[in-house]
């Protein structure tokens, strides 16, 4: 099914796919733990244990919930869609140099639109409560995401122009050209990586776009949308957010980590790379201040412009 591991025996491929899914499902909360730990270290605190997100998930899934009287069946769609869309998207995104379990020409559009589906469901869940605060968060979420998506797609377009003419347009093929193209097109690739780092930070509600730990509802974006979710629903929301962090981070990772040709080794390197990226996010969150809400669109447009310039750079060469 995939291009680079196609010559391996079927059972090796199946094992690799299982490993991919296991890394996604099992490891993603750890990334959140790493971010928190790094931030604590910067602040001179000891910080919670690295496995704290797992403990919290276990606690939330066991707990009861309080549900708003205003809500309907739509309210449960958000948490569910957050987990399912991130998981299905993760099946098409390579982890570093390790190819994705599934790939088909044009799967990148599916990945982007799965994120959009998750966002649509989360926003509807927020609006289902009828709360002014959650409506506000939902409104900001859809407005900012309009500016995030062009950066993602234009980055893909820049890479697609570098792809061999007869190679199918899969995400695995697209990210794999990162390895060779760094020599020929360093500027363009650097712009794409820069744009996508901003995409990762914005999509996962990180500083400088949004602060997951803020305590003032008026300034929140994502956290305010899930104010009314409690117990197992909040657990699924948190888990979906962790999965999304892992999947979007591996987009950047795929460009940076070339394949070594040994699938198991690639997967191991990718795990290490994800942890390092999580650490870097922790550093960013520690040294940067959060942007004012009015500034956020400008930063996002900057990301899209960087990607657009990389398209132009590649096209002109």
């Amino acid at each position: 099914m995939t291009a680079s591991a196609a010559n391996a025996p079927v059972w090796v491929q199946a094992l690799l796919a299982l490993g991919h899914v296991a890394v996604l499902l099992g490891l993603s909360p750890l990334l959140l733990g790493v971010v928190v730990r790094v931030k604590a270290w910067f602040a001179g605190r000891k910080g919670p244990p690295l496995l704290q997100p797992y403990f919290e998930l276990a606690k939330l899934l066991r707990k009861g919930a309080v549900v708003s009287q205003s809500t309907t069946w739509v309210f449960r769609l958000g948490p569910v869609a957050g987990v399912v869309t991130a998981l299905v998207a993760g099946l098409f995104v390579p982890l570093g140099g390790s190819p994705s379990p599934f790939a088909f020409a044009g799967d990148l559009v599916l990945v982007a639109y799965l994120f959009a589906l998750g966002r649509f469901a989360t926003v509807l869940s927020a609006l289902d409560t009828g709360s002014a605060f959650e409506g506000m968060g939902a409104s900001r979420e859809v407005a900012f995401s309009c500016l995030v998506e062009p950066a993602l797609f234009l980055g893909w377009l820049a890479l697609a122009q570098l792809l061999a003419v007869d190679a199918p347009l899969t995400l695995t093929n697209l990210l794999a050209i990162g390895g060779n193209a760094w020599v020929a097109h360093p500027g363009a690739l650097l712009l794409v990586v820069g744009a996508w780092v901003l995409v990762v930070l914005a999509e996962n509600c990180r500083i400088p776009f949004d602060d997951p730990n803020t305590h003032l509802e008026l300034t929140m974006i994502h956290e305010v949308m899930v104010l009314d979710h409690s117990g197992p629903m909040l657990g699924l929301v948190e888990y979906g957010a962790a999965l999304k962090l892992a999947v979007t981070s591996s987009l950047v990772l795929g460009l940076l980590l070339p394949s070594t040709g040994r699938p198991a080794l690639d997967l191991g390197i990718a795990v290490g790379g994800l942890l390092v990226l999580a650490g870097l996010i922790g550093v960013v969150e520690s040294v940067l201040a959060r942007q004012r809400l009015l500034r956020v669109p400008m930063l996002l447009v900057t990301a899209s412009l960087m990607a657009a310039f990389s398209v132009a750079l590649v096209a002109m060469r």
């Binding site: 919930a65 549900v67 708003s68 809500t71 987990v83 104010l227 117990g231």
Partner: peptide
């Protein structure tokens, strides 16, 4: 997952939106 959540919250207390 949606139905599992539905079963989990069926007996939950209902309150005004927080």
């Amino acid at each position: 997952l949606w139905r599992w959540l539905g079963r989990r919250v069926r007996a939950s207390p209902r309150a005004p939106t927080w």
